[in-house]
Design a protein around this nucleic acid. Structure first.
Lengths: 255, 255
DNA sequence: CCGACACATCTGGCCGACCAAAATTGCCTG
DNA sequence: CAGGCAATTTTGGTCGGCCAGATGTGTCGG
């Protein structure tokens, strides 16, 4: 544990309530016991129970209604507990998922893309070039480009999925570390060509070429990350993922 | 609004803090003002500020440390407020995304699946059968099965992606409406065979068969939904999606 | 007998005071 | 003068009490 985030008691209370929900004592829509009742049953003050309820409400598990009670909105899954175990997702695990998902989204987008989408992607790419030349962090434009690819699918769920992937990337401490090295090495420049290839494939409305281009781009990212993470930090070992099966899968598809 | 969830003041406070972060006054890692300071600046009690901090902490935006202060973990992005703006995603748009993503996740999972995963899927399927016979809502077990397929990929990001898709599904009012009809018609029984086929493909470690089985399953769901939504409600028209391009894409892959 | 209104009670919302951990300060010691 | 230890201050954590909205209930008028 690097960051000594002191245990918060309300999280324990929330965990107890969650496990009570997982055991199946309550159904969706049920009203669970009052905060006072739970507090005296657990032997803690009501404030803690209230804080736990706020946590569960933000997680979408319960809905609190003043004067009425607290109601179950959805049942928690396993591993839904403790808000940040998935906080530090390994960069290679993340890239593996992105390769699988984004390459197929790109392929699908190639069949749905419109002129406006092409324009949007071109603008994002232009912005990337500009950021690269002026030396400002090309971080934002990179995200914008990948997002514009998803937008070309004309499916908001896919866009949200890509947003979600990007959100996880931002949460990953290890990714931030590796990405900083790539930025220092100035290697990002090479990704512009990758993005250009993806754009070209989409412009030709060629699904297989689009899938291949996106896959290759993320493969390049992976290889570069691998190259930059081998030497000094043994902690990276925990994040190494074998993507060979994915590669085999991808080649299956691209035929 | 059907559910009158009374406004909660701490959400307003959280929103103010979020907007203050979005304006760029703070960087990641900065310590923001003490709860007492914020409370008197906004003219509210410290408890409200504290509750807002709990909310922001669950969202991963800040981290609070007893005796030290509250620190910025990540910057909120637009649309991060008001937990459900895109509340009503069309069922067919959602299914389209699921077909694309879940079929490929299944294919990848087929290359990574372990004995324990097979057991987990088998249990979920058994639970589905049991729920079907006893007449209780087979809702939960259905989700559990799809989730167990993602788990077989050994990639937590993919699991989280599938969770996210199901989360959206639950938020969709239109989906709930259609799903109720399917439940009434007793058609869910046929999905058991689909799930069985998916499980079989994974057991054989056959990626293409797995992709095809998952794709066909969701195609069956789509067709049934289409059949049940044609007549009486013109509002459904807005949710009709042409998945032909997706079908073409899928057949490309399955070769 | 039925509906509507008022009140009693139950429920979560909010508050200010006090508690404990962390950080800071400053004194003491070598 | 430098280092370490202890008192003090700062900061979030916890608590019990009171407030306000929602619900259920009993009574009164039709």
């Amino acid at each position: 544990m690097a960051e000594q985030t002191t245990k918060r008691r309300y999280q324990d209370v929330a965990e107890m309530i969650r496990s009570e929900l997982m055991v199946g004592s309550f159904q969706i829509g049920d009203r669970l016991p009052t905060e006072r009742h739970i507090s005296e049953q657990l032997g803690v003050s009501r404030s803690l129970v209230r804080d736990a309820m706020i946590m569960l409400e933000v997680e979408g598990i319960v809905s609190v209604r003043k004067g009425s009670g607290t109601y179950v909105m959805r049942l928690p899954h396993v591993g839904d507990d403790s808000a940040e175990p998935q906080n530090d997702i390994g960069p290679f695990e993340l890239l593996q998922a992105r390769q699988l998902l984004e390459s197929n989204i790109a392929a699908f987008a190639a069949t749905m893309v419109t002129k406006a989408d092409i324009v949007r992607m071109r603008e994002a790419l232009e912005q990337e070039r500009h950021d690269m030349e002026t030396g400002s962090g090309a971080y934002v434009a990179d995200e914008e480009f990948h997002r514009s690819v998803a937008l070309a699918s004309q499916n908001s769920v896919l866009v949200e999925a890509v947003d979600h992937l990007w959100e996880m990337r931002k949460r990953s401490k290890m990714w931030a570390k590796l990405h900083q090295r790539i930025f220092d090495s100035g290697y990002q420049r090479h990704w512009l060509d990758d993005h250009q290839a993806i754009l070209a494939a989409l412009q030709c409305r060629d699904p297989m070429q689009a899938r291949r281009a996106m896959w290759q781009h993320l493969e390049n990212v992976r290889l570069k990350l691998l190259e930059l993470s081998d030497v000094d930090d043994p902690a990276f070992d925990a994040y190494l993922f074998n993507t060979d099966p994915l590669a085999a899968l991808s080649s299956d598809q691209t035929q």
